[in-house]
């Protein structure tokens, strides 16, 4: 048993707990937040099915960003879809036997990694080079981009530079899933890659990355435009309604 194996196993149990627990707590808060007003951004769909389509366009195509700023949209799409491919490629470390579609997607995961780094570089350049964006950027805006960029670059460095022992990495993570400690192969790049990922998981529930679950709860996107057909009344306002004498 290597020290690195124990350290990373514990680190990832901690990270997974904070990530899952923190995210759940946040989503509970979002779900309980009062929505007193009917405020869909018009033109908005007038049926529930329409809202599902609108939300799908927002989540899958970043529609409102497309209409707002084409450059930011392009880099954002590059990063997010690259990340999807990268995550699919990494599923090979957690499944045995590897699912056929994960095996088929392996080469695209590498292109995804490049797209992801390219998109992040573009988004970071925007924060530095566009004066008005630089003015409103906080350290955490930069930190998130640097963190994700570090994860992407260390991953590509392993692909094109020094391979780690991927068989041992997979054995480690299959073991980790089953609470069985397995050794972690020696590789500085791998240690860096995994540490950055653990940091990302831990700060995710406290960061701007919460836009991932948050978008589903935004009233200007998820509401049906039917204020005349159906009166909008939140539960706490309904109570006040019954207590108040009607004139």
């Amino acid at each position: 048993m290597t020290t690195a194996g124990v350290v990373f196993a514990l680190l990832f149990y901690l990270a997974a707990l904070v990530f899952a627990g923190g995210l759940t707590a946040r989503i509970v808060v979002y779900a309980r937040t009062p929505v007193p007003l009917k405020i869909p951004t018009t033109p908005a769909p007038t049926t529930a099915r329409g809202v599902v389509f609108r939300m799908a366009r927002e989540v899958l195509l970043f529609e409102s960003l497309f209409k707002a700023n084409l450059w930011t949209w392009a880099f954002g799409i590059l990063f997010h879809f690259g990340l999807v491919l990268v995550i699919v490629r990494h599923l090979r470390y957690f499944t045995d036997p590897v699912w056929f579609w994960v095996a088929a997607a392996q080469p695209f995961g590498i292109y995804g990694g490049m797209a992801m780094v390219l998109g992040l570089a573009g988004l970071w350049a925007r924060r530095i080079l566009v004066q008005r964006i630089r003015y409103i950027s906080t350290p955490s805006d930069h930190l998130m981009l640097v963190l994700l960029l570090g994860i992407g670059l260390s991953g590509l460095a392993m692909q094109y530079g020094a391979h780690p022992d991927v068989i041992a990495v997979k054995r480690f993570f299959l073991g980790w899933l089953r609470f069985s400690l397995q050794p972690m192969p020696e590789s500085a790049l791998l240690y860096l890659h995994l540490s950055l990922i653990a940091v990302l998981m831990i700060i995710f529930p406290f960061s701007k990355l919460l836009h991932a679950p948050g978008v589903f709860f935004s009233p200007s996107r998820n509401q049906v435009d039917n204020p005349r057909e159906k009166r909008h009344l939140s539960s706490w306002a309904a109570v006040m309604d019954t207590e108040r004498p009607h004139g």
Partner: peptide
């Protein structure tokens, strides 16, 4: 404390762990 508890949990779960597949 949290890390300590997790280590304890691991020590208890260890013997129950299924064999990890490898080539």
């Amino acid at each position: 404390t949290l890390i300590g508890r997790m280590a304890l949990l691991l020590a208890l779960a260890g013997p129950l762990a299924a064999a990890v597949s490898e080539p």
